[in-house]
């Protein structure tokens, strides 16, 4: 997994609440058996005017010029600015893969749906929770100055706007550490294999119908 320390980039404002994972990557693309290649279909229904299919060439499809990620400079954004409950709905990790493949490294919102939040860390995409008024302020700054480069610093747990405010965010140490180091979860867990076996032996006694 790619590590995350500090990232600086253009932030794209996606000004709607409850953006669900069906919107981030529609169902027809979930038929892929791969982890990569979802970027061209991120936000597919909003991004294109024509319907899309897996493995189709997207270059001929008409783009919806009203959609923020089709507008310069936001088509080069690497930070997504969003509203509350981002990533709600389906557990599909494809949503994170699609954002990652599009080029996003961080999503900033007042709140995230739990499964999406969890999935992000497994793929080096940093979900940053800021206060509602701080997110409002970022939306204001970005609308005044599109192309503004924002810094997301996982080491310092800060979001920094040039010449502007510095917002602090919280994150549990466990997730932060793994993301900073880009650690492989499974290998780490398997260091506790003996404890898992001991637990199983105990459960076999206490609740044998489960084993």
């Amino acid at each position: 997994m790619q590590a995350f320390t500090v990232h600086e980039g253009i932030a794209a404002p996606l000004d709607r609440a409850n953006v669900d994972t069906d919107a981030i990557i529609p169902k027809q693309y979930l038929k892929s058996v791969k982890r990569t290649g979802f970027g061209p279909n991120a936000f597919d229904d909003w991004r294109y005017l024509d319907p899309g299919e897996p493995d189709a060439d997207n270059s001929w499809r008409r783009k919806n010029s009203d959609f923020v990620l089709n507008q310069s400079p936001f088509d080069r954004a690497t930070i997504l600015l969003a509203r509350k409950n981002f990533g709600c709905g389906s557990s599909r990790e494809h949503a994170v893969w699609a954002l990652d493949d599009f080029g996003f490294r961080a999503v900033i919102a007042p709140s995230f749906a739990d499964i999406f939040f969890n999935n992000s860390f497994k793929n080096g995409l940093l979900p940053v929770v800021l206060k509602e008024e701080e997110v409002d302020e970022l939306f204001r700054r970005v609308s005044q100055e599109p192309g503004l480069r924002i810094q997301v610093d996982l080491q310092a747990k800060e979001v920094r706007v040039p010449g502007g405010p510095v917002f602090h965010f919280e994150l549990d140490e466990y997730r932060r550490h793994r993301l900073l180091e880009g650690l492989d979860d499974i290998a780490l867990t398997l260091q506790h294999a003996q404890e898992i076996r001991a637990y199983e032996a105990r459960r076999r006694e206490e609740a044998p119908w489960l084993m």
Partner: peptide, 22 residues
């Protein structure tokens, strides 16, 4: 509860998941 694909792999490999209590 539902999990993502990375966690599916984690459960297959370890029978466990890291979780914070809700």
């Amino acid at each position: 509860f539902g999990i993502g694909t990375s966690e599916v792999e984690h459960v297959l490999a370890t029978q466990c998941l890291w979780q914070g209590k809700s």
